[in-house]
Simulated assay, not measured.
Amino acid sequence: MPLTRISLRRGKSPAYRQAIMDSLYLAMRETFEVPEDDRFMTVSEHDGDNFSYGSGFLDIARSDDLVLIQLTVSNTRSVAQKKALFRRIAERLSESPGLRPEDVFINLVEVARENWSFGHGLAQYVQEG
C-alpha cells in the first residue's frame, strides 16, 4: 500500500505518464515510509468531455494539465506526514514531468489496516491470534 489512482486528460506521452508515477512513488518513499517495491498504481486518461474541474476553485488557477491523484493508504500517518507528502508530491511533479503545482490535486483516502489483501486472499496486516 498505498494504492494510487492517477487521472488526467488524454494525450500525454507514455514517458510523461511514467514520470508522474515515478515522481509519486519517490515522494511517498521520502515522506510516508513506503517500502521499496510497494508500488501499486494505475493511470486513467480521459477525453475532454469526460474530465471536468473547477478551473478557479479556492483561487487556484488550474489548466487542462490538471492531474487528479487519489491515494488509498492505511490510517497510520500524522497530519505532519500528510502535509509533507502533499508538498513533496507537488515538488517532485514540478521537477518531472514539469507540472505546475496548481495542476496537482491530491485526495488521500485512509482505511484501517485490516482492509488490505495483497494476494492469496489473506489480510496480511492482520495478526492472527
Rank of each mutant, 00 (worst) to 15 (best):
P2F: 02
P2M: 07
L3Y: 10
I6D: 01
I6S: 00
L8K: 05
R9T: 02
R9K: 12
R10H: 15
R10V: 06
K12G: 01
P14G: 08
P14H: 05
A15N: 06
A15T: 01
Y16V: 02
Q18E: 07
Q18L: 08
Q18A: 08
A19R: 01
A19W: 04
M21R: 04
L24A: 07
Y25I: 01
M28Y: 08
T31M: 05
F32K: 08
D37F: 10
D38C: 04
D38H: 00
D38M: 02
D38V: 01
R39L: 10
T42A: 14
T42K: 15
T42E: 14
V43T: 07
S44P: 07
S44M: 13
E45F: 08
E45Q: 09
D47N: 12
D47T: 15
G48M: 12
G48D: 14
G48E: 13
G48A: 13
D49G: 11
N50R: 15
F51S: 08
F51M: 09
S52F: 13
Y53V: 06
S55I: 11
S55N: 12
F57R: 14
L58S: 05
D59W: 11
D59G: 13
R62T: 00
R62G: 05
S63L: 09
S63T: 14
S63V: 05
D65Q: 05
D65P: 02
D65W: 03
L66N: 03
V67D: 00
V67T: 06
V67F: 07
V67C: 04
L68W: 09
I69N: 02
L71A: 11
T72P: 00
V73I: 15
V73K: 14
V73N: 15
S74R: 10
N75R: 11
N75G: 13
T76M: 10
R77F: 04
R77G: 11
R77I: 12
V79H: 15
A80E: 15
A80Y: 11
K82Q: 08
K82E: 02
K82V: 01
K82W: 05
K83A: 15
K83P: 06
K83Q: 15
L85N: 04
F86K: 10
R87V: 07
I89G: 02
A90F: 00
A90H: 03
R92K: 12
R92F: 03
R92P: 01
L93F: 00
L93V: 03
S94T: 13
S94D: 09
P97F: 10
L99R: 09
R100G: 02
P101M: 11
D103M: 06
D103H: 01
D103L: 05
D103E: 04
D103A: 01
D103C: 00
F105M: 12
I106S: 00
N107L: 15
N107P: 00
N107C: 12
L108A: 07
V109P: 06
V111F: 04
V111G: 07
